[in-house]
Design a protein around this nucleic acid. Structure first.
Lengths: 345, 345
DNA sequence: CTCTTTTATGAAACCCATTTCATTAATTTA
DNA sequence: TAAATTAATGAAATGGGTTTCATAAAAGAG
């Protein structure tokens, strides 16, 4: 069952395909009676022009490729929502893929998006030293970016010239650590994610700098790097609690880690924030519904998505854009942190 | 800067485009020396065939359209993950859109997917009485489904002939209510979502039936319908707690509602499950990390997505498929429910 | 050493819409 | 009324591949 084409309509209406096209797009005047005849046929056959043919000719698809690391982490759907809202208004749709940190899959999808001739690409989540570790992906990414407008969202890739839109994660982490220091904490640990991800690396660096500047203890065993999941947070916190020298507060690479950390603390019989303060990052929707409500750093995921699409749009229009677009995060103090109370035994 | 085409390669290699195509696809033997020459050019120009042209000719895009109500609710990303995994193996990618229950947007996207000639459509979230309430969307959906293989995921639409893959949500709710009854609860409330959504309607009906069969109280003021968000759960629970006759247990339309309900209870100074039992639905990843861990009904979101893609694949291959594919949910008992203790004052 | 296959290749048709160019018909202007 | 616009339409080129058909060259069979 072949679909109806513009030729079928033209034939039946005794006009040329050019005329049907003109009715369809209103690109040139068509006699009223002709238009009516054609429109009636379009209606009755429920004809819809073939987008592929149009795309081929116009050399644009109206599709933006989006590669996210893990849609299962509520932060990304939030970014997606922001991006989608903006894209929808501009008439774009998303070809979406979940990479789950799988290099091969990422490379695969990048390839595929090029083949599908998407109009632009949003690549979320950067890597440190990508070139050394994954030359294939790095190469693919650069090749694609040289042909299709591409923006890197919330990630950096060393030595690359990609345009990026990102939260100042370093500043955000500093906000979190400073908050804890102001609450009187001196023993602050860091729970991180995969160490090769730029997010994790940037946050760890910021954590170290603030502690160092404040002249506080910087123990290696308090600087953990695992992954971005809830379970990772749990594991890391368990580990911290097993140490003879325990921190009184913890900064986490994201809210999922923070939730896991709190869970582990509670399971170990501690209370948050009474016994230990925990601060997250991202401000996922759940952060202010969790018990206790999470003190966290908001990076306004929605804005991030919206901005990324905005920048991409400019690039697609051929405009020059700044290489970096930085968004400022801010601290949201809720219930998971509090003033340090001395536990004199 | 036009992209390299197969003609450019052919010209430079002094062969016809047919030969280049054969090298590209391995569809016919090509002399070794010719192949080498062509492959070298493909490499050096970093040529990638235009997918639009291929799609136009083959009349297939390798794209599946996916319409989800709200990616921000962790249940959907889970379904997506399952679907994507299956689709990726079959060589398909997703054109994704978030409808947020917006009829116009849904209709829009449906239209768009038809125009883009996606190979199949997964439509998530059904409506009751769609035909009466939203004739336009209903019509669009049926028209599209008559041209493009379409499966409805976890939703029913009255009087429609769409193929659907769904969890037996009625049975799942029954499981939840029965569990509470077995724990000794007699006063059980229901927190629902938007009443025109089939999910909500089906669950409410099941709740009523079980209570009725067990001869238990069925108060209208204990049957709430709001929305699927956390805040909705909160609002509804607050309302319940304001009643003179309070339930001792609550079944929720989803985990988000359950989390909100628990939050409201805790804010009102109650404990869950000591003072009131709460059971959710979906088993989102967070369910077993929330404090208290959620007793809930798992509908194996991953399987749902995987199955949906499987069925769609069969349809795309022209096979006949059953009209309904039902998956069995199961109860997961965790910490948010417990035996009713009599509070004799 | 012919005859039949098989291999290797190119020309051209095809997929379906858009758009330019040309042509004729209808108006408007001078 | 002739000249100049403007309206209305069609033929054909275009976009970038895949595939059929035809043909020439090479290989195998008898």
């Amino acid at each position: 069952m072949r679909q109806i084409t513009i030729y079928d309509i033209a034939k039946e209406a005794n006009v040329s395909v050019a005329t049907v096209s003109r009715v369809l797009n209103g690109t040139a005047p068509v006699r009223k009676s002709t238009r009516a005849k054609v429109e009636a046929l379009i209606q009755s056959y429920n004809f819809q022009p073939n987008g592929m043919a149009r795309s081929l000719l116009k050399n644009e698809t109206g599709i933006i490729g989006l590669i996210v690391p893990d849609l299962t982490n509520p932060f990304y759907p939030e970014v997606f929502a922001g991006a989608e809202h903006a894209a929808h208004q501009l008439g774009y749709t998303f070809l979406l893929s979940n990479s789950i940190g799988d290099y091969a899959k990422e490379s695969d999808y990048l390839h595929l998006m090029r083949e599908k001739r998407v109009d632009g690409i949003l690549f979320m989540g950067g890597r440190v030293n990508l070139k050394q570790c994954e030359p294939h992906l790095a190469q693919e990414l650069e090749q694609v970016a040289s042909v299709i407008p591409t923006v890197l969202v919330n990630g950096a890739i060393r030595n690359s010239n990609l345009v990026s839109v990102l939260t100042d994660e370093g500043a955000g982490t500093a906000l979190a650590v400073q908050h804890l220091i102001e609450l009187g904490h001196r023993d602050i640990a860091f729970l991180g994610g995969e160490s090769h991800m730029s997010t994790a690396a940037i946050k760890l660096r910021a954590y170290r700098k603030v502690l160092k500047d404040a002249g506080l203890k910087l123990l290696p065993e308090w600087q953990l790097m695992d992954s971005f999941s809830i379970d990772s947070g749990k594991r890391q916190m368990k580990h911290l609690l097993s140490l003879t020298e325990r921190p009184t507060a913890v900064v986490c690479v994201n809210d999922y880690n923070a939730i896991g950390a709190i869970k582990a603390a509670v399971e170990a019989g501690l209370s948050v924030p009474e016994d230990i303060s925990v601060v997250g990052f991202d401000d996922i929707p759940l952060a202010h519904h969790f018990i206790p409500e999470l003190t966290t750093v908001s990076q306004q995921a929605n804005d991030l998505g919206r901005t990324a699409v905005g920048v991409l749009k400019q690039m697609m229009e051929g405009q020059k854009v700044k290489k970096q677009h930085m968004l400022e995060p801010h601290l949201i103090v809720r219930q998971s942190t509090r003033t340090l109370v001395q536990h004199d035994v």
